[in-house]
Design a protein around this nucleic acid. Structure first.
Lengths: 235, 235
DNA sequence: GCGCGAATAATGTGATCACAATGGGGAGTG
DNA sequence: CACTCCCCATTGTGATCACATTATTCGCGC
């Protein structure tokens, strides 16, 4: 008895006729909502996801959900098993190792390419994200930590103007988001030493080599932390 | 006057009730069909793609087309512009350079990881694909060349058992497929020297370093050929 | 109590319709 | 002959329904 069987289906026929601005589709907002949930720890690995369930949660018809889910499956943020059931993927040691490799290969490169396009204004924004990370860590705000950490990294990477490589990295982040959250659920975020300062310093003195190293170190440290904490068995 | 306005809509209500085998969905076969067309040069960059058009071509309703197209857009094989029109993406110098970087970073790694899982049987298959490449080149069969070349590379890579990295590489190949075809349309495939032999030889003597180098050389040569031939302006 | 099987619920898939927005083409005007 | 405006065809989007398949639940017999 989870839901009353004959509920009148929430008659919200025209949910957003307010399309006066940029005409964002329902699909797009659903996609972004799900994406953020995955990226910032709103789902745990192994969670089941159903089209009608999400549709009811988000107050829309199953139609835009279908497309958003299909899209997230293509990005490997969700997985459809042979049952045709959709779930948040589990993490395995093999997958995790490949994610680490991809991150350590691609993210320092993106940072290096971005450096020349990061001026004082961008650097200020990046430093602000880092402070948000510290604040979230101090208050054990896991969601806030994950979001700020994401924004810190991508505020750098996006300056590279390398959309093709960015798409690869974004797909990778989507794949370890839920798993990251699980690690932090267990251990908190406090024993994570902040490697972001080294990156900021490297950006300030335009030291590309040091920036690469700082990003690589941040990836290594963060991933080995969440890897060791939960990878005894598959999640 | 392209289509008679009141055509009875091709009444093929139950196109495949033959689902006796593995229950493949219409979506899946449509996806694979489109994927192969993109991968092996069935589309040219800039081609417009419409849901109803594809639906009619493939004899299915627009519904599975929508999902397949959405999926391919997520994989960057297709692009939806702000008009909501879908097209095969054009290639730019910037995108092309990123593709080359990603290939040279990821593909030698995949090959290196695959080496230990390639026995005589697999090597025979790989060599057979290479002969198909030669045969296609000899007969100026562009589609055949592209397909055999794909199969050669992925017969190696898939032995790495690294699905996460494979997904990245597959997305990359989808992005340069149409563009590659355009280059070959202009110049033929004949002045492409066959670098595959070096890879096969390296596999035979288990020389990982040489294998990496051979794959990297193959990527470099192939990409610089198609890059130089058409990248004076954007396509 | 405990398996086991049938009935029932839930799920993804495909089809069809309505709709708003965009694009293209042609008539009309200068 | 060029330009503008309007109309209509085309497009993607969202909703809803029907259906086959798969899970789950319930109840019967041991």
């Amino acid at each position: 008895m989870k839901t009353p069987p004959s509920r009148p289906k929430a008659i919200i026929r025209k949910p957003l006729p307010v399309k006066s601005d940029i005409a964002v589709t329902t699909h797009e907002s659903v996609y972004r909502g799900l994406r953020n949930r995955i990226l910032f720890g709103g789902f745990l690995p192994g969670s089941a996801v159903t089209l009608r369930g999400l549709a009811e949660d988000m107050g829309v018809s199953p139609m835009p959900i279908r497309e958003a889910v299909r899209r997230l499956i293509a990005e490997r943020a969700l997985k459809m098993q042979d049952n045709r059931r959709v779930l948040v993927p589990l993490m395995t040691q093999a997958t995790f190792e490949q994610i680490v490799f991809a991150r350590k290969t691609l993210e320092p490169e993106l940072a290096a390419r971005a450096m020349d396009h990061i001026g004082p204004a961008e650097l200020r924004q990046i430093a602000a994200h880092d402070r948000s990370v510290d604040r979230a860590m101090a208050t054990s705000d896991i969601h806030g930590y994950m979001e700020s950490n994401y924004r810190f990294h991508f505020a750098i990477y996006e300056r590279a103007g390398a959309e093709t490589l960015m798409a690869l990295v974004e797909s990778i982040w989507l794949q370890f988001g839920p798993f990251m959250r699980m690690a932090y659920n267990r251990w908190g975020t406090s024993d994570l030493e902040d490697q972001h300062q080294a990156a900021i310093a490297a950006l300030q003195r335009n030291d590309r080599k040091a920036l690469r190293a700082a990003i690589a170190a941040d990836v290594s440290q963060g991933m080995s932390f969440i890897g060791e904490s939960v990878l005894r068995r598959a999640y």
